[in-house]
Design a protein around this nucleic acid. Structure first.
Lengths: 192, 192
DNA sequence: TGTACATCAGTGAACGCGCGTTCACTGATGTAC
DNA sequence: TGTACATCAGTGAACGCGCGTTCACTGATGTAC
């Protein structure tokens, strides 16, 4: 794929990929239209053929993060079991640890979910596995309201742990995986 | 305090205050040495008499946020009770909701706690009330390790809820205060 | 199968801007005698 | 109490930079006939 063609072929995807890489290696401040165009080997203005402005590109990058997270959340394991919930929690934490800048970007702004439809969809895709897993764990007798509270309890705990760990605000001893498992098991056990 | 004096008098504090205000009104991107100097009515270079560089100023602003949070965390209530823990959780959430940009800044970077001593102190001040409250709730028989796990469970839940709420990732119905109380009560009840 | 031409996806130069920070300086303050 | 002078806390002009975005353009592609 190194043709010198005038037409790039898949510039949109290439920009998002370059953005994802740059985000992780140099942080969110490094994300710029010019630098991404440079990395993809294209004129700054070429990006504007695919994104209305910088904000649109950044949003698309965050969106791709949500999609990756949603994909990783499909854990092959009997749904409804405690082990299933724990496995999903681990996926979430592992994602945050492996891609801290992306994780930060995804939750950085109150990205107006109404305005950016695709973003909203991607985020929902990430939300659904959690919801379904909790619903399965609580059993068919739990109504939607109970499921929602369960989701919030679990998600808050996992997200909070991940966020605090990334920002180095947790006591040292807490950052090893076993501590995470211990904490999550307690949360999960208390869910029903 | 509107003297036209050559010497400002308390430039350092004025810059931090202006930064706090600007942060909340215009977001973290708006924080700049030049703009803050402008707002305080001083030459851009004057700020460098008090801060080595921009990073130092921003860190000082985040630090002031931690101090404000720590101060607000001194809840007048019998320590050790569930109500005390719930009240502290509310303080945390209220802080995040009232000052979302500050909250974001405080946890934005893995602010190298070793490098910036004052920052580390301020963050510790914010941590201690939580720790003490959990220790009181668990009683004197709980060893330090047990307390730590309790702190992580509570803090993760509160922080995660706050972070998710600020980024608009929670289901709508979950954002009202009653839902928060419900969730936190469940967490607190399951602590011991 | 061949060609005209509309459309698509880039180029390239330029703009105005605000930023962090440098440098050399000067007015205000406070302390030693 | 008065004054010399070191130090402190600002000024003011300038730098170089990278950015987002504008404008007018041109080469490549693919479709209609």
């Amino acid at each position: 794929m190194e043709s010198q063609a005038f037409h790039h072929g898949n510039l949109r995807a290439a920009l998002i990929d370059a953005g994802t890489a740059l985000l992780e290696s140099d942080g969110p401040h490094a994300l710029s239209m010019r630098e991404l165009a440079r990395r993809v080997g294209v004129t700054p203005m070429a990006a504007y053929r695919h994104f209305a402005d910088k904000d649109a590109l950044v949003t698309a990058i965050a969106e791709s993060g949500f999609r990756a997270l949603a994909e990783a959340s499909h854990v092959a394991m009997p749904p409804g079991s405690d082990a299933h919930l724990l496995a999903m929690a681990r996926v979430y934490l592992d994602f945050a640890v492996a891609r801290p800048a992306m994780f930060g970007l995804m939750f950085a702004e109150p990205l107006d979910m109404g305005r950016v439809a695709a973003m909203s969809d991607a985020a929902s895709d990430a939300y659904r596995p959690i919801r379904d897993a909790v619903a399965a764990a609580l059993g068919p007798r739990a109504d939607e309201d109970k499921v929602m509270v369960g989701v919030i309890r679990l998600w808050s705990a996992v997200h909070g742990y991940a966020a605090l760990r990334l920002s180095n605000r947790l006591p040292r001893a807490a950052t090893v995986r076993d501590r995470f498992d211990e904490v999550m098991e307690a949360v999960i056990a208390s869910l029903r």
